[in-house]
Design a protein around this nucleic acid. Structure first.
Length: 276
DNA sequence: TTGTGTTTTATTGCCTCC
DNA sequence: GGAGGCAATAAAACACAA
């Protein structure tokens, strides 16, 4: 266990209170007397009892000590026992003080790292949200446009007196996939674009979902669109972008990742938006 | 000078590893 | 079971506005 007797604490105190000018605060040079008392009575039973009653002042490490510790922390943020003792000797500190300093330093580093990660994550999330809003707006505009066009088409069909049997503009031999659902609605979903993407990822930028209604009746078109809920489409676009972001932005490097994105659970950041 | 917030040093309790 | 790490916390030191 890591329990330290009073003599350990006293020794630690002495180590941070060497009788040098460096360690004496400029404004408060009031420790020399007290420090001398500690030196004089370090092994004295009476003093020990007194020291336990009096408040022992905590001292900050000197500028040079901190500088040296920082330098060591840069090269290795965890110390081997030998290195710890060596460093303690070099700096006139107790090994335990060095250990504590490194422990606290690691904690500070972790906090900073979390702040950095959060800021980065937030910036990327904001950008993504902005993109999402734009896409949603675009989607709404396209839906409105579609409604107008289908309404117009319905009107045209009603006006035409001669009824011609409708034919599918694209035959089955054109490598289409006809699902049970789409067939029911007289529609055919063209997956050519998806196949192209699988073969040639470079062409993904020009890839788009093409739907090819086997019936051009406005009702069928509208039904098909009702089947593909716009939110589902948007969510898939959103997820694709999220994956791309992770791949491209170098946001989560192996060393610095905080595992915000786990395989099991996607981040929601709901906690962040509840406050907005 | 003093009240208050922040930083730094140190302790405690728990956990993991050997 | 001891050593060492970490999280939480205490307390001293420090900074700074009023």
């Amino acid at each position: 266990m890591k329990r330290f007797c009073s003599s350990d604490s006293m020794a630690a105190l002495i180590s941070v209170c060497p009788p040098t000018e460096e360690n004496v605060p400029k404004s408060k040079q009031m420790y020399s007397k007290e420090f001398q008392a500690l030196l004089d009575g370090i092994d004295d039973e009476d003093y020990r009892e007194e020291a336990s009653q009096t408040t022992v002042k905590k001292r900050r490490l000197s500028f040079n000590q901190v500088k040296a510790l920082e330098k060591n922390f840069e090269t290795e943020n965890k110390l081997e026992p030998e290195r710890k003792s060596q460093l303690a000797e070099e700096l006139g500190l107790q090994p335990r003080q060095v250990a504590i300093w490194f422990q606290n330093r690691r904690a500070r580093w972790k906090t900073k790292q979390l702040e950095k990660d959060f800021a980065l994550l937030k910036a990327n999330f904001d950008a993504l949200k902005h993109d999402y809003n734009n896409l949603e707006q675009e989607n709404r505009a396209l839906n409105t446009q579609l409604k107008d066009l289908t309404a117009k088409l319905g009107k045209d069909n009603a006006d035409s007196s001669h009824s011609v049997k409708e034919e599918s503009p694209i035959s089955e031999t054109e490598n289409n996939v006809t699902t049970e659902e789409s067939t029911k609605h007289g529609l055919c979903y063209n997956v050519n674009a998806h196949e192209q993407q699988l073969v040639s990822p470079a062409s993904s930028s020009s890839c788009a979902l093409h739907f090819t209604p086997t019936s051009t009746s406005p009702q069928s078109v509208m039904e098909w669109f009702q089947l593909t809920d716009s939110r589902t489409v948007m969510s898939s676009v959103y997820q694709t972008q999220l994956v791309k972001l992770e791949e491209q932005s170098n946001l989560f490097s192996a060393e610095e990742s905080c595992n915000f994105f786990s395989v099991d659970q996607a981040p929601t950041l709901q906690w962040y938006f509840t406050g907005q």
